[in-house]
Each structure stands twice: as structure tokens, then as C-alpha cells.
Simulated assay, not measured.
Amino acid sequence: MINTAFIGLDYIVDITEEGGKIASSAAHAAERNCIDNANKALHIARKKGWLTILVKVGFSLHYYEQPKNSPMFSKVHISNALALEGKGTNFHSALDVQPTDLVIIKPRVSAFYGTMLEAALRANKINRLVMAGVSSVWAVQSTVRDAHDRDYEVYVLEDACAAINEKMHQTSMEMLSIIAKIIHIPDMTNL
């Protein structure tokens, strides 16, 4: 039996909304209607009875989990970016978050690193993942690669992903097509 989960990655204020503290992909996400498309995907997933998971990157008050040697994360504390106590790690104001969604906080790029994600997937006997998020280049690629290496059947919902620009996004999708199936929202009805 195939059990499926939809995983939405980093649809948070600091990353996906104009004015977010590290929102280099916000304009592309808006251009591609990522949040609207993520909502469509969440609606389909809920209707099909799939486990719906929303993942956000963030750090606690004193940034204890912050990797100080990471070029990506080493300076986020200076601007209070990705602070779990702040508004920047709230989900995008237009994202349709429901009480039944499993919310996971991650301290790194991949949703599997240092989180309860795999335990939740195994407990629910999930073997197929449909993933989307911002950014295609970082969170999506990293989590898809980890899922692939954990033997999940992986799909990437291309129209609910964004990057800094279309070229980077398309390059990411091309790379991921080797280890995952790239799909669009209408394809979800056939899964």
C-alpha cells in the first residue's frame, strides 16, 4: 500500500514575503504564485487523506543551534532573521495552515536534519513524498536528496517551488529529475 505525505518547505515570512529578512526568493515566489499553488496542493492532499507537513527553518532565542561556521547561516543572528520568537518564522500570511498539519522546525537546510520528520513518516507508514518549497536550490534540493537516500518515492511539485530566479529554479528541477519525479498540481490527482 502506498501512503503519501505532502511536505511544504520554508513558506515563512523571512524567506517568502517581501520585506522578509532573508527574502532573496520572495519576488520569484510571488511571480510563480508559490503560496497559492502550495494552498492548492494542501487542499488536494487533505482531500486525499495524506499526511500534510509544513516545515520551517528557525533558531531559538540565543541562536544556540545556529551553525556559526556556515556561510548561509552564520550572520542571521545579527538581523534576528529566522528567530523562532519573532514574526519572521511565522508561515506566510496567505498560507492555509490547518490544525491538522504537522509543523516541524528544522535547524539546517534539510528537513530531515535534527528533526522528528523521519519518525513521523515511519510512524504513519509513509513511503511516498510530494515536496515543494522555497528555495528550490536549497531546502527542496537538500530534503529531496535526503528523502531519496532514505528510500522514499519522491515527487517534486514544481509549480509550488521558487528560487532567486527562474534559471536557478529550472536548473534545480533538472538536477532533481534524476532522483525524483517532477510534477505539477494537476498530476497530484493521479497519485
Rank of each mutant, 00 (worst) to 15 (best):
V76S: 03
V55P: 03
M116R: 04
Y152N: 11
K125G: 06
L61I: 13
S60R: 11
I22E: 03
C161R: 00
D96S: 13
A119G: 05
R128H: 13
D96V: 05
A147T: 06
I22S: 05
K40R: 15
E85N: 12
Y152G: 07
A27Q: 09
S135P: 01
K75S: 13
H92R: 12
I53N: 02
V76Y: 07
K40T: 14
D101M: 02
A94L: 14
M131P: 01
G58D: 05
T189D: 12
I182A: 10
S136K: 00
A81E: 07
H43E: 13
H169I: 09
A147G: 06
A119H: 08
L82N: 02
L9D: 02
R145M: 15
V130T: 09
E158M: 11
L42P: 04
W50T: 09
I53Y: 08
I15F: 00
E174D: 13
A83G: 12
M173F: 05
Q141M: 10
K56Y: 10
K47I: 11
I15L: 04
S172R: 00
A38H: 07
Y64R: 14
F59A: 02
Q170G: 12
H77T: 04
H43W: 10
V140E: 01
V97T: 12
L54N: 07
V144D: 04
D96K: 07
V134C: 01
V140N: 11
P186H: 14
M131Y: 01
